[in-house]
Design a binder for these strands. Sequence first.
DNA 1: TATATATGT
Length: 701
Amino acid sequence: MAAPVSAFKFWKPGAEGPGVHLSEERELPGETGGPPVIFNPNAALSIEKQRQKLPVFQHRNHILYMLEIYQTVVIVGETGCGKSTQIPQYLLEAGWAAEGKVVGITQPRRVAAISVAGRVAEERGAMLGHEVGYTIRFDDCSDPQTTRIKFLTDGMLVREMMSDPLLKKYSVLMLDEAHERTLYTDISIGLLKKIQKKRGDLRLIVASATLDAEKFKEFYNQNESGDPSKDTCGILTVEGRTHPVDIFYSMSPFPDYVKASVDTVMKIHESDERGDILVFLTGQEEVEGVATMLREQARALSRTGMKTHLRVLPMYAGLPYSEQMKVFERVPPTVRKVIVATNIAETSITVNGIVFVVDCGFVKLRAYNPKTAIESLVVVPISQASANQRAGRAGRNRSGKCFRLYTEESFEKLPLSTVPEMQRANLAPVILQLKALGIDNVLRFSFLSPPPAQSMVQALELLYALGGLDEQGQLTEPLGFRMAEFPLSPMFAKMLLESGNFGCSEEMLSIAAMMQIQNILLIPPNQKKAAAIEHRKFSVKEGDHLTMLNIYEAFIKNNKSSQWCKERFLNYKGLQRAVTVREQLQRMLAKFKVPKTSSEGDPDVILRCIVSGFFANAARLHYTGTYRTLRDDHELHIHPTSVLYVERPPKWVVFNEIIQTSQYFMRDVTVVESSWLVELAPHYYQEGTHLSFANKKAKVT
DNA sequence: TATATATGT
């Protein structure tokens, strides 16, 4: 293997030599500009040739053969070996989409569904939305008559099961990127096992990384005889086209990975090796901090005569779209890009030209405490799978190097893969969906990785308190069924469905839509004060919900102007999205005959309506100056981003969610009156004394 | 008083 260059003296090469070989994604004709290939017969020929060059092509007949003899086929293949674009086409060519049947492919992310569909349509010389289409929320680019290959998000597949429980239109379903184990992938995995028992003709392809292949096979194999010839599930491995990535570990642990990442980037920059750098850190603050330090050091370096300029680009989800796009811009040869990113760059965003990866070894993940029903964000060590995925980002165009800011010994102690989301999520929305899909006994549902029983109990209790489930745990009619149909968390769904009764459905629609969008308020690191001044103009003493309503209404009043947003440090794209979300929610309220009503400026009805959905998230001001949950006296604080943070602390509040970082913070907080809690949730709260509601009824005084 | 990772319906 390549010896480390002198600049990296303190690095130890991985014992296995080039540690990671990940596949290269194909450069597509047309991606680099130029005329659309479909109009050029020679180009069409070259598309065919390119298809045949992909590693997966060697396995074409074998894949089709396996699908004849097995009901489920697990395909192990790294991203880019061509499986996502090619296998659907093989299936189509082999007749799996005959007689009006559809080949469906799920993706965990919306952008992936759109872009892969686009590529396949292009390869087939077809207009997207006809033979090849996609379906994601708010964007159905498929035709029920003509679409034969359909890409969809896995969340969308779960939605489709609500109207078509046996997924009758599909002959084959391919769950792509199944190893990512997102919440909806896992729901789909379990539900498809159930569907397969009723539909022997439904074929399933699970596309996953090596690690999970056996687990998937075990899960889907219906052969209990012990005779392998009777297996109903088989595994097939597709190698990728690879560029080697050399792994270097630190000789000893770093006390501060933030500083270490800066030092490492500068060492790379000072070396003779060319190529862009990608740094993995855990959050926005770290990213901005490192970006600032790198800019300073690079400036100092250029004063000493360094010719290559360092362009430092932060990358995280909360960054405005236009800023995010900068990481894709091409730079002249005298400029080296360094992208300082959160986990977003691990799977969601792919930047070409990365030769060096610097991996801090940590990630910020959502965690759920089933005892307290509190969600938190915690920084935890990454898994080995994650570390390898990060390293692979260095080898997409040519061989690369990955510097791990931890020792080889610590790498070996890392968990093999990340805990599936199902085991670290609030399950109320999941349980509601499963109930709506006719899964009566959710505790016995076949989960690939069963969640903690306590999480399920918490979810069932909440759904009962909201009136979505009855004493027997059955979905209530109509409330429970309607809640399940909403693409919102159960509390939001309840709040909206009640809004007609409170006489404020117009306002609640705006509030609910706004609350679905993150980062409506933009706070550029160098203009914090100016942003705060602009934002404060919208805030009201009632709290964050009415503040968001103010912003939404002002946005509409100002003709949805992007300039208006810019001047007020508001997220224009986010507000546009809020408009779309609101329209969808409005259609649903109309469908359920919830009357269109407005509070005409009276805030109390709105606040009471919020309480009808969020009564379980109530807190009171403790004499110590902090807040306590009504349910179990847990200490809470108002989040610094809340408009109530600067107000005189109100006595009673409800909130959308708790986020634990340094402390437990309530986010999206609104002032309420204690009497409303008792009045609107009498089954949940009791005035004066404790009474029994599963021995848990909280006291409101 | 002291601050968010990433997805999805």
